[in-house]
Write a protein that binds this DNA or RNA. Structure first.
Length: 121
DNA sequence: CTAATGACGCTAC
DNA sequence: CGTAGCGCCATTA
């Protein structure tokens, strides 16, 4: 499988620049990638074919859920484990939902700084 | 070429 | 909170 598609490269580049301890949603990536009108579906596929140098674990579904949990329960544990290892915490009473309120990565935040759009602390 | 599937998202029921 | 349907697009059969 050769990745000749620049679209995927754009997605990989975006995911690669996601800092540890932070997560992004598929829709956010699709909307964040410039130069290409990507959809969440394309991002999902890009992740599926993502090389090993792409932190796919930092990409979660809308609302911080792990859609892959339904596909591969084992992979779900893998992702959760990796995220927790980076400092990302999950919501209580849940097994596959990330605490977006504190760990969602805000690419190119406004001058507002600390742009905690979801900050509630 | 068409049909079915899938690491998605949203709305409807 | 659950399932179902539709839209989206790339890959596979």
């Amino acid at each position: 499988m050769d990745i000749d598609k620049d679209l995927f490269e754009l997605v990989y580049a975006f995911v690669r620049k996601v800092p540890p301890g932070k997560v992004v949603t598929y829709g956010q990536v699709a909307d964040g990638v410039t130069g290409a009108a990507l959809t969440a579906r394309q991002v999902g596929h890009a992740m599926r074919y993502a090389p090993n140098d792409v932190p796919w674990q930092r990409v979660v579904g809308a609302g911080g859920r792990l859609p892959i949990a339904r596909r591969s329960p084992q992979m779900k544990l893998q992702q959760r484990r990796l995220l927790e290892q980076e400092g990302v915490a999950f919501l209580p009473n849940t097994e596959d939902q990330v605490d977006m309120s504190r760990f969602q990565w805000l690419p190119d935040p406004p001058s507002t700084a600390q742009g905690s759009l979801f900050s509630e602390d």
